[in-house]
Design a protein around this nucleic acid. Structure first.
Lengths: 221, 221
DNA sequence: TACTCTGGGATTGTCGACAATTCTGTCGAC
DNA sequence: GTCGACAGAATTGTCGACAATCCCAGAGTA
């Protein structure tokens, strides 16, 4: 039903449209081969998701997220993903445990090969599987949305030298706590992980983003 | 711009439309004196907010929130409002402190008068002011949305005998921690408060809601 | 009786046209 | 040269009409 909305969302997240870009109804309805209705509908949905900004009679643009907003988004993610980690630690099955450890092993491998793209991909898998095994629909939906909103900022972390090594150990700690069934430790490990993301964002400050970044399908933190 | 969306939202939250009610486009566009476009647009927005459910070619209905979903919503609220409370404890001004204590005094007065409606109102004010003084836009928006989603369930708490007294002391503890500038205590007090809400929801089970409740503008927890 | 098929009515989905608004570039006055 | 007024273009907002789909009642059949 909302296939146009989904397509536009992924196109925004993938960097096809950059923050500040104008989104013209006719142009998009032509590009996606659909009516203006579908585009307008997508604008409304993506506006409430925080990805698009609309102004009366002036059209829609890709929303620009400030650094302070990105930090707040990560703070919210921190408490929600901590809840998810605790929940996963409580109810994950042995199969879940194996899968989690397997992902960690692959991440370790990717770091050894210095393959940033693969690491980012695995990172996304790790968090997504944790959400799924937590069974917490509400928190998962909110986190997914928050990740999307800050995608542009998170991307910077992917290209930060030495970041992967730190990130890897943090993820390993989360996985260990979940496997041990220790809710508090899982929650704390996830909190520490995202706190380090916040620290990096803060340290980064408002340095200009590296200019040439086309394929922004990566997700890293 | 989205005035129709706002009106429909408040009409859903106020109980004018109940969970499961069909929302007919023509009927609503006639009632709100607007075009079908505006109604459809409102449906899209409220769907992503979780208040409305749409099915292809079958129209929109007011979303029905299950008890387990209401519990998850409150759990998510718990961690987010804890973050807000901690933040408020850190940066609230002396004027904020006075205002918070003033609201608590009024709540105590409302409990003494056994005025449930006034207590609910003040409860809403308390949480809203806390959000505002936290300065955490992201968490505030999420909490507001979560409160809306679970509004129907929260309402039950309002009419629970003896609930106000417990609730009052919990709020007083939150206020005291914020005034003391103790982030951890504020966070913990807020967590304890919402945990007690969760406990009540769980204890409540799936008992039928009391039948005749027209004015559902109250918000209580 | 139970089941299937079919038609009409009601509702949503989609398209096009036109009005309303904003934006852009040009011209003239000072 | 700078500023404001103004016309034309571009874009969004809104309405109506029609197509597509679903729902339900009723006829027909085994």
């Amino acid at each position: 039903m909302d296939t146009v909305t989904d397509t536009l969302r992924t196109d925004i997240l993938s960097g096809r449209f950059e923050p500040g870009d104008r989104l013209l109804e006719i142009q998009l309805s032509d590009h996606y081969d659909c009516g203006r209705d579908a585009i307008r509908s997508a604008f409304v949905a993506l506006t409430t998701e925080g990805l698009v900004q609309r102004e009366e009679n002036r059209g829609a643009t890709v929303r620009r997220i400030s650094l302070t907003e990105a930090i707040q988004i990560t703070e919210a993610r921190s408490v929600l993903e901590s809840l998810i980690a605790a929940r996963a630690a409580r109810i994950a099955t042995p199969e879940d445990h194996n899968e989690l450890l397997e992902v960690i092993a692959q991440m370790r491998n990717a770091v050894a090969k210095n393959n940033g793209a693969e690491y980012s991909e695995l990172n996304g898998v790790f968090h997504r599987r944790l959400r799924e095994m937590s069974g917490h629909e509400i928190a998962s939906q909110l986190v997914e949305n928050l990740r999307n909103r800050a995608a542009h900022h998170q991307y910077r972390l992917a290209v930060m030298p030495g970041r992967s090594a730190d990130s890897l150990e943090q993820h390993a700690a989360i996985a260990a706590a979940v496997v041990a069934g220790n809710e508090d430790a899982a929650s704390a490990a996830m909190g520490a992980h995202l706190q380090s993301v916040i620290d990096v964002l803060k340290r980064w400050g408002d340095l200009p983003a590296s200019p040439s970044q086309q394929h922004k399908t990566q997700e890293t933190d």
